[in-house]
């Protein structure tokens, strides 16, 4: 699959996320990660999805995966701090 196709899928997933269709968003994000398991954007949005539905452990695991590859990722650090402050 080419980059443009993956980007299009990502946009779809984000759209589903924003309209609270978490099942569809999760399906598409996992599909992207099957093709490109290092896709940071897809990983980040999967983390956001899990955080949204209060699956904090899963969200944390995803965010830590991203930090391994991008230790200076500010957005992910912000999310991890939030989880920590809330005791998760």
């Amino acid at each position: 699959m080419v980059k443009e196709e993956i980007d299009a899928l990502l946009d779809q997933a984000k759209m589903f996320l924003l309209v609270n269709n978490y099942e569809e968003a999760e399906k598409i994000l996992k599909k992207i990660l099957k093709i490109d398991k290092e896709n940071i954007d897809a990983l980040f949005h999967l983390g956001i999805l899990y955080e949204t539905i209060n699956e904090h452990e899963k969200a944390r695991e995803i965010y830590l995966k991203i930090i391994e590859k991008e230790p200076d990722n500010k957005d992910v650090k912000e999310r991890l701090n939030k989880l920590q402050n809330e005791g998760f």
Partner: peptide
């Protein structure tokens, strides 16, 4: 409820 949103800078947040 946690609501995913897009911030002014285009980044997704909650």
């Amino acid at each position: 409820r946690n609501k995913p949103i897009v911030k002014e800078n285009g980044k997704t947040s909650i």
